[in-house]
Amino acid sequence: MKRLVAVLWRLIKGPLQWRALWIWHAKFMVGVTGVVRDADGRVLLLKHRLWPEGRQWGLPTGYANKSETFEDTVVREVREETGLEVRATRLLHLKSGYKLRVEVFYEAELVGGTLSIDSTEVLEAEWVSLDSLPPGLQETHRHLIEQTAPPPPPSGWGGGRGCDA
């Protein structure tokens, strides 16, 4: 049987092979989340209107559109939800295992714009330091923020003023 399948596979070639693979395999939605920090190291948090009560705080997030790169999804979602312009910089985490969803997490650098929330999706937006993360923050987001926080300056660091010689 396997030999017959292999012969048929070689016969159909190109686009028909891709169509067969598409029909045969699972389809997934891809949720993309951005960890956006400002120049002071604070992280952008949103209180999402459509998330469960008591767990509404989280990072900017949304689903990838067909033919959109994940980096472009981060840029688009942050702009749609907050009016801010960002640049996706580093893939932080990729998580699968949900029924029909894959989660992708990127670090993103603030490059411009003015904070202005889309009230259909977002109730509030705040720049928050690591020591003032709000209750009701999604645990996966809290963990990601803590794991990617910039390291504190070394003890006795003079803030870039130079050394006394």
Rank of each mutant, 00 (worst) to 15 (best):
G113N: 06
E124W: 07
E146R: 14
A125T: 11
T73P: 00
T73W: 03
H48E: 08
K95Y: 12
L59E: 04
L84N: 00
V5N: 04
T114K: 04
G83W: 00
L110S: 09
L59C: 11
V128Y: 01
G62N: 07
V111F: 09
F70M: 14
W127L: 13
R10Y: 05
E71N: 07
R161T: 14
G136W: 07
V78W: 01
D164N: 05
Q17L: 10
E103K: 10
A149Q: 05
K2R: 05
L4A: 05
E68G: 09
A125E: 04
Q138W: 03
S132W: 00
L123C: 05
W24Y: 08
W9C: 05
E80V: 07
V86A: 07
R142T: 10
G136L: 10
V35P: 10
Q147P: 01
M1E: 02
E107L: 13
C163G: 05
L59I: 11
A108P: 01
L44F: 02
K99T: 15
V122K: 05
V111T: 15
P154V: 15
G31I: 10
E53D: 13
S155M: 09
F70K: 03
W127C: 13
R79I: 06
L46Y: 14
D72Y: 02
E139K: 04
T148V: 07
D40I: 06
H143F: 07
A6G: 02
E126Y: 06
L11A: 15
W57R: 11
L8A: 15
E109A: 14
T89D: 12
H25T: 10
L45K: 08
F105M: 14
I23Q: 04
E107V: 09
D40S: 14
V36W: 01
T140L: 09
W22E: 14
S67D: 15
R10N: 15
E80N: 09
R76C: 09
V35T: 12
A165M: 08
K47H: 14
E107K: 10
W157Y: 15
Q56N: 06
Y98H: 00
V78A: 09
G83H: 01
G62H: 12
L44R: 00
D118H: 06
